[in-house]
C-alpha cells in the first residue's frame, strides 16, 4: 500500500472516531431522556401536583405538592438574594474595574467559585446558619443556593456588559450623562437580553441542585412556607424516594425526575435560542 493510502485511511479512522464520539453524546441524551420519560410517565398524575406525601405503607396515592412548592420557594428566595448581588458585582467588574488588576482578580475568583463543589457550600452554610440556630431551615437552603448563584450571575453579567461597545458609553457621557445613568439607561438596557438569558440559565441551574440543600433546608413531608423551618424540595425528595424500598415512592421519584428534567431541558433550549439571536 502506498504512503498516501495509509495517510488517507488513518485520517478516515480518526474522523470516524470523532463522529462516533458525537453520536454517542447525542444518543446518551436521548437514552437518558427516554428512560426518564418511560419510568416517570406512570407516576405522572394530577395527584403528583395537588397531594402531599402519604405514608408509603398506607398504599394511598400521595403526591409531591409540598416538594414542588418548597423548591419554588427556595429558588425564588435564593434568586431574590443572589441576582441583585450578582448583577451589581458584574456591573462593578465590567464598568468600574475594567482592565484593573483588582477587577481581573475578582473576575477570576468568581470563575473559580463557579466550580466549587456545591456540597461544600452546603457544609459551609450548615456551620453558619443551621448549627447556630439548632435546626435545618429554609433560609439556609436559599442562602446556599444564592451563594452558588452569585458568581454565575456576576460573570454572565460582566460578559454581557463587555459586549457593549465602549463608544456607546462615551456617546452617552459626551451628552453630559452622569456615569450611573450611562450604566442604568444605556449599558444595562443594551445588554438586557444577554443578562436576562444568563441569569435565567443560572436560576435553572440552581433549581436542579440537591447537594447544597441536604444539610440546609433538608426535607419536610408537609406543605410549608415557613422559612424558619425545614422546607421540602423536589430534588431532596427525589433523593430520598428513589433510594427507598417502597415502589410507590420510587415511582413518584421518577415522575418528579421527569417533570424537573423536561422543565430544565425546555428552559435551556429556549434560553439558548434567545441567546443566539441577541444583537449584543
Amino acid at each position: 500500500m502506498d504512503l498516501r493510502m495509509v495517510r488517507k485511511i488513518k485520517g478516515y479512522i480518526m474522523l470516524f472516531l470523532s463522529t462516533i464520539a458525537a453520536l454517542i453524546g447525542v444518543a446518551l441524551l436521548f437514552a437518558i431522556l427516554y428512560k426518564v420519560i418511560m419510568a416517570g410517565i406512570d407516576g405522572l398524575s394530577l395527584n403528583l401536583f395537588i397531594k402531599d406525601e402519604a405514608p408509603a405503607f398506607l398504599q394511598e396515592a400521595g403526591g409531591l405538592r409540598h416538594a414542588f412548592a418548597g423548591q419554588l420557594l427556595l429558588t425564588a428566595v435564593a434568586s431574590l438574594i443572589g441576582i441583585p448581588i450578582g448583577i451589581l458585582g458584574g456591573i462593578y467588574l465590567s464598568e468600574y474595574a475594567h482592565n484593573s488588576k483588582i477587577g481581573r482578580f475578582l473576575s477570576s475568583l468568581a470563575d473559580v467559585s463557579i466550580s466549587i463543589p456545591t456540597i461544600i457550600i452546603g457544609t459551609f452554610i450548615y456551620s453558619i446558619l443551621v448549627r447556630p440556630v439548632g435546626h435545618f431551615n429554609g433560609w439556609a437552603g436559599s442562602v446556599a443556593l444564592a451563594v452558588i448563584l452569585v458568581p454565575i450571575v456576576m460573570r454572565t453579567t460582566e460578559e454581557s456588559l463587555k459586549l457593549i461597545p465602549w463608544q456607546l458609553r462615551e456617546a452617552a457621557l459626551a451628552l453630559g450623562t452622569p456615569f450611573y445613568k450611562v450604566i442604568k439607561d444605556i449599558v444595562i438596557k443594551s445588554a438586557l437580553t444577554g443578562i436576562f438569558t444568563g441569569v435565567s440559565l443560572a436560576v435553572a441551574r440552581i433549581a436542579g441542585e440537591t447537594a447544597p440543600l441536604l444539610f440546609t433546608s433538608f426535607s419536610k413531608n408537609t406543605l410549608s412556607f415557613d422559612m424558619n423551618e425545614p422546607v421540602a424540595s423536589l430534588t431532596v425528595s427525589i433523593f430520598t424516594y428513589a433510594s427507598s424500598a417502597f415502589e410507590s415512592w420510587v415511582s413518584l421519584a421518577w415522575a418528579a425526575a421527569l417533570v424537573i428534567t423536561v422543565f430544565l431541558l425546555i428552559t435551556n433550549i429556549i434560553l439558548k435560542q434567545i441567546m443566539k439571536r441577541r444583537s449584543y
Partner: peptide, 13 residues
C-alpha cells in the same frame, strides 16, 4: 461641549 463619534452610536431606545 457635545461630541459626534466615528461610528454611529444610537442608544437602545
Amino acid at each position: 461641549i457635545g461630541m459626534v463619534f466615528q461610528k454611529p452610536t444610537p442608544f437602545p431606545m
